[in-house]
Design a protein around this nucleic acid. Structure first.
Lengths: 139, 139
DNA sequence: CTTTAGGCTTACGTTTACGTTAACTCTAGT
DNA sequence: ACTAGAGTTAACGTAAACGTAAGCCTAAAG
């Protein structure tokens, strides 16, 4: 599957973002396309980095934090023990951040369950239970 | 536990934010303190709304999205079936968003596991295994 | 051969989420 | 009477993450 190359608008369309965003992410070092003359050529590696970036965005990380996360994944890990220790430390702190977010999600979901139950109960008091079941669009 | 009241700096200190942030959140309708003369008085209800807001922030929601989430939790739910259906719909879409974030977290954690294994393997090749165990600060 | 489509750089504009004075007020303490 | 501390409004400033032209280049299509 590797060895594929993409234009800027290829990737933009594929991920529903704008070319401007890709150029901006390049400025920030999140993607590193090569050039064909003046035009940007994106590799599969860039595509992966972009996916990681967008995933990080959905989780509310800043582009700078995202860069850290991406570069951890990057197989350009030197064998220097110092660097490896540093990497392990960063992995650990990021993991904690992610677990915190995970807990936040759980608490929010639980709270929403309570709200939903109350809403359903209030509905059933006014409506025949059958119509409640039917008209909910749970995509 | 209810019936407690707080000054703006009380809450600010308690949650490690600035008074300015609380005033800003009030402008956005995230908290609704009453006034004692000109001074803001925060209730336990405001405190809860603030906790929800900060939780939402950690998950990367915008203040506007956070307001929606907060107002879902707010027990000012009218018994109007129309409103209740609307509430259930919003609960459903928010739940999906949260589950997406959840999946993003899982994928990131899995990827980080792989990175960690590789790093540890690279370390063990250079260092005696014992020192690896000891010097990692896993708080 | 001149449109048109896509890409480029440069640069100013915009939104969100606050930070940072500035200029007052009000109350409690010495 | 004075001052220190906490709070207020109003307003300008700022960092992040892009949006939005403007002006130029170039290859392919009519």
């Amino acid at each position: 599957m590797p060895d594929l190359e993409y234009s800027i608008s290829d990737l933009a369309q594929a991920f529903s973002i704008t070319p401007r965003t890709l150029r901006f992410y390049e400025m920030k070092g999140l993607v590193l396309p090569k050039r064909q003359g003046v035009n940007r050529i994106y590799s599969d590696k860039d595509k992966v980095r972009l996916e990681l970036a967008l995933r990080g965005k959905r989780l509310g990380f800043s582009l700078e934090e995202i860069k850290e996360i991406i570069e951890m994944q990057d197989p350009t890990q030197p064998d220097d023990p110092r660097q490896l220790f540093f990497l392990l430390q960063k992995l650990h702190t990021k993991r904690k951040e992610l677990i915190n977010k995970f807990n936040d999600i759980n608490e929010t979901l639980n709270a929403m369950d309570v709200v939903e139950e109350r809403a359903l109960a209030a509905l059933v008091k006014r409506q025949p239970a059958r119509s409640v079941q039917i008209s909910l669009d749970l995509t």
